[in-house]
């Protein structure tokens, strides 16, 4: 799990060093820096779609709460983990 703690105003965008594609609602990503491939499930794909344009953590969380019926604390925790992992792998950039 990532040590990064994202704040509501943390700004998140996909890294330029990757390519991705939609696979029937899921996503495949190729990190061009180390040639490693990743897959995201449908919820991860929603996050990935949202951050194609830079967004704050709060904007992402609120957008997801409009898409999924889920406990907001659970969503926030999962989002912290996912974005932390994407950041560790160099797939997104975060401005705090």
């Amino acid at each position: 799990m990532s040590a990064i703690r994202l704040l509501d105003q943390s700004r998140i965008a996909v890294s330029p060093g990757q390519v991705s594609c939609d696979l029937a609602g899921e996503v495949a990503i190729l990190n061009l820096k180390d040639s490693v491939y990743y897959g995201l499930d449908s919820v991860g794909a929603s996050v990935w779609s949202l951050i194609q344009q830079p967004k704050t953590f709060a904007e992402i969380r609120d957008a997801l709460l409009g898409i999924y019926e889920v406990d907001s604390a659970q969503l926030e925790s999962d989002l912290q983990v996912l974005l932390g992992e994407l950041s560790e792998r160099g797939l997104i950039e975060i401005q705090t």
Binding site: V19, C21, L23, A24, E26, A28, L30, L32, S35, Y37, G39
Partner: peptide, 28 residues
């Protein structure tokens, strides 16, 4: 699933130079 199909085919390509990011991107 599309994702599983993609992953299976990804493992099955000929690649001369796995460090060639332009090629990897094109193949993707």
């Amino acid at each position: 699933s599309a994702r599983e199909s993609f992953a299976q085919l990804l493992r099955s390509t000929y690649r001369l130079d796995t460090t060639d990011t332009a090629m990897l991107s094109h193949e993707f």
